[in-house]
């Protein structure tokens, strides 16, 4: 158990280092995929098989595809210009300082922690096989209302993307008319 955690942890560390050090962005995206799978493994070790499945379906399946689309749409022949735009020494300084501050907070909190205290009796945590069932019960019974409202939220987001996409089309078609 412990050994598999160390192996997965090492994979996560190495692959995330590879993500930020590769020159080819496509390689970075693929290394990120490895990171996501290793993280899913860690979730499995924590008896959270639902989170692990979601991690693979959404991050490895959806988010990475999105990244790859973006990488393919960006014109990489202007790499030098991009590099110049993103390498500003002052920004690097800020980034490093804030990264260290964040790290310090994370370490401090993990060492001290918040005082765990519950005013009610805590139910025993669900066993691994039951975590998906427990999650579904919470989602579809307790949190039914926000869940349903979230569907309207998605509808609005969809309408929005149609509006934004059509805006480009309308502009293009009116431009064509003018050209004629």
């Amino acid at each position: 158990m412990e050994l598999s955690f160390y192996i997965l942890g090492a994979v996560v560390l190495v692959s995330s280092l590879m993500v930020i050090t590769r020159r080819n962005p496509m390689h970075s995206a693929l290394w990120l995929l490895v990171t996501f799978f290793a993280l899913a493994g860690i979730y499995l070790l924590l008896n959270a098989e639902f989170v692990a499945a979601v991690q693979i379906i959404i991050y490895a399946g959806g988010v990475i595809v999105l990244y790859i689309f973006v990488i393919m749409l960006v014109d990489l022949s202007k790499e030098a210009a991009l590099r110049a735009a993103f390498s500003k020494p002052r920004q690097t300084l800020f980034a490093v300082v804030f990264a260290f501050m964040l790290m310090a907070v994370v370490v401090w909190v993990s060492l001290r922690g918040i005082v765990p205290f519950s005013i009610e009796e805590v139910a025993a945590p669900a066993s691994a096989a039951d975590s998906t069932r427990a999650f579904a019960k919470e989602l579809f019974l307790t949190y039914l209302y926000p869940f349903e409202v979230a569907s309207v939220l998605l509808l609005v987001a969809m309408i929005g993307s149609v509006v934004l996409a059509r805006r480009g089309m309308v502009a293009a078609s009116s431009g064509e008319k003018k050209a004629r």
Partner: peptide
Amino acid sequence: YIGLELMAISIYL
């Protein structure tokens, strides 16, 4: 939170 986001996203658009 869900209500707030629904309100906000409609208005951004």
